[in-house]
């Protein structure tokens, strides 16, 4: 049984500051090449290594990250 995490990012509210990218212990997050409606390169998940630690959610200044965790 493995602990797996997942994050959901409200990309339209994301300002692309990259603080979440810098604190993720598993390098799960990167800034997208695409932009949201405001022109920010929003954050997105780039692999499935998320452990649901919520570090990204805790440092996100705009509260746009929701974190889930499950035993699979």
């Amino acid at each position: 049984m493995a602990i797996k995490g997942a994050i959901v990012i409200d990309v339209e509210r994301c300002k692309g500051c990259g603080v979440c990218v810098s604190v993720c212990p598993k390098q799960v997050i990167a800034l997208s090449k695409n932009v949201n409606v405001k022109g920010y390169n929003y954050a997105e998940m780039v692999n499935e290594d998320c452990i649901g630690c919520a570090s990204c959610g805790m440092v996100c200044p705009d509260g746009v990250i929701t974190v889930y965790k499950a035993k699979l």
Partner: peptide
């Protein structure tokens, strides 16, 4: 990219509190 089986209400560990408004 994320596993849809994980993103379920019962697996929620962190979300923005309702004591903040939704104003950007």
């Amino acid at each position: 990219m994320f596993n849809e089986e994980i993103v379920k209400p019962e697996n929620l560990v962190y979300k923005k509190t309702d004591v903040l408004t939704d104003v950007v």
